[in-house]
Amino acid sequence: MSLKVAVSLPDLTFTRAGGLRTQFERTTEELEKLGCEITYFTGANFEELRSVDLCHIFSMNSPTYFKGIALKKLNKPLVYSSVMWRESKPVFIRTLLNLSDALPFKIFNDVVACRDLSRLSDVILPNTNQEKEWLRKAIGVDPKKMLVVPNGADNRFKNSNLDEVDLNLPFDDFVFSSCVVYQRKNLVRLADACLENGFPLVIAGPIEDEGIFDLIQKKAERGLSVKFLGGLANDDVMLGALYKRCRVFALPSFYETPGISALEAGLQGGNIVVTKVGGAEQYFGEYARYVDPYDKRDISDKLADAWHNPLSQRQKEELASHIADKYSWLAVAQHTKQVYEEVVNGKI
């Protein structure tokens, strides 16, 4: 079934590399291969979109609020990939939302926008069951309106000899984290755990929060071996080599669903330590270690366990095969297109 789809996401997403940008670009690329005609909503091209079959917006919060209102005026089904989580307890968020409804003026923030957009949308696509449950508890989204569509990952390096890549690092064994450097990624606690255990740390990703960068650099003065590589292109063989040759890949964020870089590390047989908040266990099962992002002791102990007791070669191969089979971007696009067809045909 050929479908015309208007798509959008927060404009700032295009200013740097990151998981949301990868999810958007790779999902839409694979949808086009499956016969969908994808048009990006710019605002100025609103009239040109009247012939689309449906609209799909990635990220359900304040930066896409007015995009959702505008596209709803096309009177076409509206699909949201939620990509939404906040650290506060769901009961606290739900209480604040209820209180805001009683005010004589409108409070506008990410959770209010998420709640309003959930009412506006026809279908919502969380990436994990945990995200779906969070949306139900915190935002009040009807579970019948939600269908889990997983995140994906590419094995761009399967034809590359990653063992021959010169990493130009002053150490052979290291902990690696690939992510944007900002508060949510919990890199300060990761640095503390590496310092405590004496593990070198390598971080690849654009620096968005200079304060986090400075805090980690100060730990180098206390003996932490740390190397910042800046942002690496998704297809840079250096990135693939880091995934494959790190002793541990760590992503102890305050939440992830599940973290595309963790999936990419798994495709290289990575020895993964990842946050337990957001639903990563749904993807990695018994092949990863899961940490409480607020518990320094838990992060340090799980990191040490992964360092000293890595996955066997057989387990690494099983993990890579599992991710390649279930979480390719083609599989994600096929699942997404199936949702599109059911929405357009009035089945959901």
Rank of each mutant, 00 (worst) to 15 (best):
residue 245 R to Q: 12
residue 202 V to H: 10
residue 121 S to Y: 06
residue 215 L to Q: 15
residue 137 K to W: 03
residue 141 V to Y: 00
residue 241 A to L: 08
residue 126 P to W: 07
residue 183 Q to H: 13
residue 121 S to M: 09
residue 176 F to P: 07
residue 150 P to Q: 04
residue 117 L to H: 02
residue 216 I to F: 08
residue 177 S to N: 14
residue 147 L to Q: 13
residue 228 F to R: 07
residue 244 K to T: 01
residue 238 M to F: 09
residue 188 V to R: 13
residue 152 G to P: 08
residue 225 S to D: 11
residue 153 A to T: 06
residue 140 G to C: 08
residue 148 V to Y: 06
residue 120 L to F: 05
residue 188 V to M: 10
residue 197 N to E: 08
residue 172 D to F: 05
residue 199 F to K: 12
residue 230 G to N: 13
residue 211 G to P: 03
residue 163 D to V: 05
residue 157 F to Y: 14
residue 182 Y to I: 04
residue 127 N to C: 03
residue 238 M to P: 06
residue 134 W to R: 02
residue 152 G to D: 03
residue 225 S to A: 11
residue 246 C to N: 01
residue 215 L to K: 15
residue 172 D to Q: 14
residue 228 F to Q: 06
residue 201 L to C: 06
residue 178 S to H: 14
residue 133 E to R: 14
residue 218 K to V: 07
residue 125 L to I: 02
residue 132 K to G: 08
residue 234 N to S: 09
residue 207 I to S: 08
residue 138 A to V: 09
residue 151 N to L: 02
residue 174 F to Q: 01
residue 173 D to Y: 02
residue 133 E to S: 13
residue 159 N to A: 13
residue 207 I to M: 00
residue 178 S to M: 09
residue 119 R to P: 10
residue 149 V to D: 00
residue 171 F to L: 02
residue 230 G to V: 11
residue 195 L to Q: 05
residue 187 L to R: 06
residue 118 S to P: 11
residue 144 K to T: 11
residue 215 L to E: 15
residue 129 N to D: 05
residue 120 L to K: 07
residue 142 D to P: 01
